[in-house]
């Protein structure tokens, strides 16, 4: 999920950059040199995963997975997502330099919030863990869509209709991300539980 260049107003761009810089600074501080390979390769994996299109009725949506990013990386989600977005903007021209800050906040802030909300619940018994995983996938995309809407609205009051359309258009994506997060987390729990928070 990203906003293209030339759409947002100056104040929104700069506040996005400030928040993204703060988040990235915290993320980098918490990231040891020992974990760099881990974070880099996982952010490459998320880069690839976001190119996956899953079918929804006659159309298809691409996955965002920032909920899972948050669970697996915690605060490191900020630098990780920023790097993935930078590479996307250079290799595919998705987003860009001026909107890098805003786009990082849009995807990474919900990831970190989901980490704090749901990481303690993921290792509970399976019904709670599954509900938490669904909520994590669903809410991460919901908050991202909301942040897109808010950035558009604060740039230009007349973007209101566009902003509501963006949020409602992401409703099916939220459901699918919720479902995929449930299966994905239960898979990781079986195969490689030490990747999940709390096990470390």
């Amino acid at each position: 999920m990203h906003i293209s260049e030339g759409v947002l107003a100056g104040p929104v761009l700069f506040s996005g950059m400030a928040v993204a810089a703060a988040g990235t600074a915290i993320g980098i501080k918490k990231l040891d040199f020992d974990q760099l390979a881990q974070a880099g390769i996982l952010s490459a994996a998320f880069f690839v995963a976001s190119l996956v299109h899953v079918p929804v009725g006659p159309s298809s949506v691409h996955l965002i997975l920032n909920g899972i990013v948050g669970l697996l990386l915690g605060w490191a989600a900020f630098p990780s997502i920023m790097v993935a977005l930078l590479l996307q903007s250079i290799i595919f021209q998705f987003g860009g330099l001026t909107t890098l800050g805003v786009n990082t906040v849009i995807m990474a802030l919900p990831a970190v919030i989901c980490y704090y909300l749901f990481a303690p619940l993921i290792n509970k018994k399976s019904s709670i863990a599954m509900a938490a995983a669904f909520a994590c996938g669903f809410l991460a995309v919901f908050m991202s869509a909301l942040l897109v809407g808010v950035s558009l609205y604060f740039s230009e009051k007349n973007f209101f209709e566009v902003a509501t359309l963006v949020v409602t258009a992401h409703l099916p994506v939220m459901l699918i991300e919720g479902i995929i997060t449930v299966f994905c987390i239960s898979f990781i729990k079986k195969v490689s539980p030490e990747m999940l928070p709390g096990a470390r």
Partner: peptide, 19 residues
């Protein structure tokens, strides 16, 4: 969706092992 989720889960697990 389950197939994609497991496939991506496998991708993350392999990435972590590779890391």
């Amino acid at each position: 969706y389950r197939t994609y989720a497991w496939l991506l889960g496998m991708l993350f697990v392999r990435s972590a092992e590779r890391a």
